[in-house]
């Protein structure tokens, strides 16, 4: 452009940027929840594996799960997984933009479909578990 390069000041962007504002903190928590989601998937795989190892191994595993530290860990994981689910469900209308003619389908309705699906699946799982 034939323009003389102007000296500019580049402000530092510290690693603690996400602590500066609440929306960034909430975003970071959402990112962190993925660790718990992945961890719980691994746990479920181990669970299935133990199931294949016979009644004794499985029984011991179940007993170990009843320890207070294991129960506490499950509650922590539950909290993070709920946070993960709710924040992502709330973001679905951004990704799934639906129109009926000229009118956009309300964002709440789109998210609502996911919540409804979640309730249905949860009820089915609950019936299955309780019916055993």
């Amino acid at each position: 452009m034939g323009k003389k390069e102007m000296s500019t000041y580049h402000r530092p962007f510290p690693n603690t940027w996400w602590l500066k504002r609440k929306p960034y903190v909430l975003f970071m928590i959402r990112e962190l929840t993925s660790v718990f989601v992945a961890g719980y998937c691994i746990f479920l795989l181990v669970f299935v594996y133990k199931l294949t190892q016979g009644a004794d191994v499985y029984g011991n595993f179940i007993d170990a799960l009843k320890s207070p530290s294991s129960v506490a860990l499950h509650f922590i994981a539950l909290a993070f997984v709920l946070y993960h689910t709710i924040t992502w469900f709330n973001l679905t209308p951004k990704i799934l933009v639906l129109y009926k003619g000229e009118e956009r389908i309300p964002q709440g309705l789109v998210a609502g479909m996911f919540y409804a699906g979640w309730v249905v699946v949860s009820v089915i799982v609950a019936l299955f578990v309780l019916g055993m």
């Binding site: 929306p23 960034y24 975003f27 990112e31 973001l91 951004k94």
Partner: peptide
Amino acid sequence: TFVGECSA
């Protein structure tokens, strides 16, 4: 990474 603040 879908921080979402751009839209906010």
